Simulated assay, not measured.
Amino acid sequence: MSVPYLGFGMGLRTCYFEQILTEQPAVDWFEIISENYFVSGGKPWHYLSQIKEQYPIVMHGVSMSIGSTDALNFDYLKQLKNTIERVNPMWVSDHICFSALGEFNSHDLLPMPYTEEALNHLTQRISQVQDYLERPMIFENVSSYLTYKQSHMTEWEFLAQLHKQTGCQFLLDINNVYVSARNHGFSAMEYLNALPKQSIAQIHLAGHQDCESHIIDTHDQPVCDAVWSLFSQFSKQLPAISTMIERDDNFPPLSALLSELEQAKALTKAHWG
């Protein structure tokens, strides 16, 4: 799978709909949350139908729970497929995680155990989902707050093997790498350096809450200096990758996100052009 380079984008959120339409900010593309558009009409579709005429759109899901041992939810996949057909996105992504198991739904993105069994399980599930959707998927690394005694490989080794076995590419969230590295005491750069460079299709930059003893991936703060530094260092190893600012709460004026977007451009100008 190969995805086009779109430049620098941001998450499309309802509080910015009107301003985007009236001001047409210098954003190369927008990412939508897939599940917000499972309805047939309403405000999200009213604005998206206009915005997608002016900007490329990608879709990002949060509910696939690809790593669950439950049977695949084909009701969900049908809604996703119908939405893909309406949006006609440049690509579609979700997360390497599970969030539901039987009657339990965590409403959070829980990490996988890094085992051969989990790797084989994911390989089969990704193949099933892609066959049903009739298109390839991109999968994002999640932030984590726990590890499993059963894991016998690192997260980055697991991702490298997943790419080798499936050919799937990743939405690399550099903030999530930083959060997990701080919480578990590993090197964020070791993680990044170990990923197959050809496996990275998109990059997320976001903020978090620093509680000193641990940090929580909240996406409600500006990108911190440490994450900017990781992005700056790692981007020098990469070809130009579509990169975006992700903000999900505590929304600032749009100008603040545009400033972060300009910072991402400035950090990569010398090697991405």
Score class of each variant (00 low, 15 high):
K43H: 04
K43L: 13
K43I: 13
K43V: 10
K43M: 05
W45D: 02
W45C: 00
W45S: 00
Y47C: 00
Y47E: 03
L48N: 00
S49P: 00
S49E: 15
S49V: 01
Q50P: 01
I51L: 05
I51N: 03
I51C: 04
K52R: 14
K52Q: 15
K52W: 06
K52F: 06
E53W: 01
Q54S: 13
Y55N: 02
Y55E: 02
P56D: 12
I57P: 01
I57V: 11
I57Q: 03
I57T: 03
M59F: 08
M59K: 08
H60V: 10
H60M: 05
G61A: 14
G61F: 08
V62A: 07
V62Y: 10
S65K: 09
S65E: 15
S65T: 13
I66G: 01
I66V: 15
I66Y: 04
G67N: 11
G67H: 10
G67V: 08
G67P: 03
S68A: 15
S68M: 11
S68Y: 10
T69I: 12
T69R: 12
T69Y: 15
T69D: 14
T69W: 12
D70F: 12
D70M: 06
A71F: 05
A71Y: 09
A71Q: 11
L72D: 08
F74H: 13
F74M: 10
D75E: 13
D75I: 03
Y76S: 05
Y76M: 04
L77E: 07
L77S: 06
K78L: 05
K78G: 00
Q79E: 06
Q79G: 00
Q79D: 07
L80P: 00
K81C: 09
K81M: 08
K81G: 08
K81A: 12
N82A: 14
N82S: 09
N82P: 00
N82I: 05
N82L: 12
T83D: 07
I84P: 01
I84W: 05
I84G: 04
E85P: 00
E85T: 05
E85K: 12
R86F: 05
R86S: 09
V87Q: 02
N88K: 14
N88A: 08
P89H: 08
P89T: 06
M90L: 06
W91V: 01
W91M: 03
V92C: 09
V92G: 01
D94E: 15
D94T: 06
H95W: 12
I96A: 01
C97F: 07
C97E: 13
C97H: 10
C97I: 09
F98E: 02
F98Q: 06
S99N: 14
S99Q: 14
A100M: 09
L101K: 14
G102S: 11
G102W: 12
E103T: 07
E103S: 10
E103D: 14
